[in-house]
């Protein structure tokens, strides 16, 4: 197991480096002169020269990258071009909200999705199965900004159960988390159902049934454990969807998280901020998938020896 962990961790290092190179290159990939782009057409030559020096654009590219990397590793993400506030400080303020939102959405998605998947599987080809699976299909097909607006209209405007927007405690996160959780729940429900149906056809399940175990035990103790393995991988992948989706939900519900920070920054061409948010999301996403991989290796010994 230790060898497996080390191998997986070592495998992530080139990915992190690759991510940092791409994020670093973002500014250089702006078509035309990045400084001209950032300042607009009517900037004075002095302002352009200052920004060029401030961004270190006069150094050769590899040297610029090394500077960037060493700064990022020590936690210095630069300062916002607009507000002059340290990006790390701003991110530190905003990250907890986004991660709480992601965790809450994942919880809703996991519980709702697994429950729906199990119900659909044990009631296969009944009205209940079709109903639950139709809901799951809507969950993966509906745009999240639309779900957000529908929930906002019904539960915030009409029923006044939740705040419309802004952050004033955990209850502000319920509607956004349901929005994001819908997509996750949909995919997890579909995966749980098909995986459970496959397991329920296997010999050991027939054995369990033959020895007279009640349905409840067969499904939850014998079958579900095996059926949930493929679902584990999905959880890591869904985390990426949650990070991307948080940009939308945070914008719709006006939450001061990482996602709304990014959108605000794009409107202002505030590249240090954009770069940092992209870097942050990629790092969190890779770590989440790494954690899932390790968990998978722990749960399924076959994986460790590949």
């Amino acid at each position: 197991m230790l060898k497996y962990i080390l191998r997986r961790l070592a495998g992530a290092i080139p990915v992190f480096l690759g991510v940092s190179v791409l994020v670093f290159l973002m500014v250089h990939m702006i078509p035309g002169d990045p400084v001209r782009y950032l300042l607009g057409e009517f900037a004075t030559p002095e302002a352009e020269a200052t920004l060029r020096a401030q961004m270190g654009l006069n150094d050769p590219l590899p040297l610029q990258y090394l500077h960037y990397l060493s700064r990022v590793i020590t936690g210095d993400l630069g300062t916002s071009l607009i507000t002059r506030v340290s990006v790390s400080a701003e991110l530190t303020n905003r990250v907890p909200l986004t991660l709480t939102l992601a965790a809450l959405s994942m919880l809703i998605g996991l519980v709702g999705g697994m429950l729906a998947g199990v119900i659909a599987a044990i009631r296969q080809n009944t009205v209940l199965d079709y109903g639950v699976m139709s809901l799951a299909l809507i969950g993966i097909s509906a745009p999240s900004f639309w779900i957000a607006l529908v929930l906002m209209y019904v539960f915030a405007f009409r029923l006044s159960l939740f705040p419309v927007s802004g952050y004033s405690g955990i209850h502000s996160l319920i509607l956004p988390a349901c929005t994001l959780g819908a997509l996750t729940a949909g995919s997890i429900a579909r995966m749980t159902r098909s995986s459970l149906l496959e397991v329920l056809r296997q010999d050991f399940v027939r054995t369990a049934r033959a020895k007279g175990l009640p349905q409840r035990l067969v499904v939850f103790k014998h079958a579900l454990k095996n059926a949930l393995l493929p679902v584990t991988t999905l959880v890591g992948l869904q985390f990426g969807g949650l990070l991307g989706g948080s940009v939308i939900t945070e914008t719709v519900f006006a939450l001061p998280g990482v996602g709304s920070y990014a959108i605000q920054a794009i409107g202002q061409r505030d590249f240090p901020v954009i770069q940092s948010v992209v870097l942050f999301s990629a790092v969190v996403f890779v770590c989440a998938n790494l954690a899932v991989d390790l968990l998978y290796g722990y749960l399924d010994p076959k994986i460790r020896y590949q």
Partner: peptide, 15 residues
Amino acid sequence: AFPTLLLAIAIVAVL
């Protein structure tokens, strides 16, 4: 390594 929608957003931010 980049979440799909975030990658798309980053590319639009650049282009």
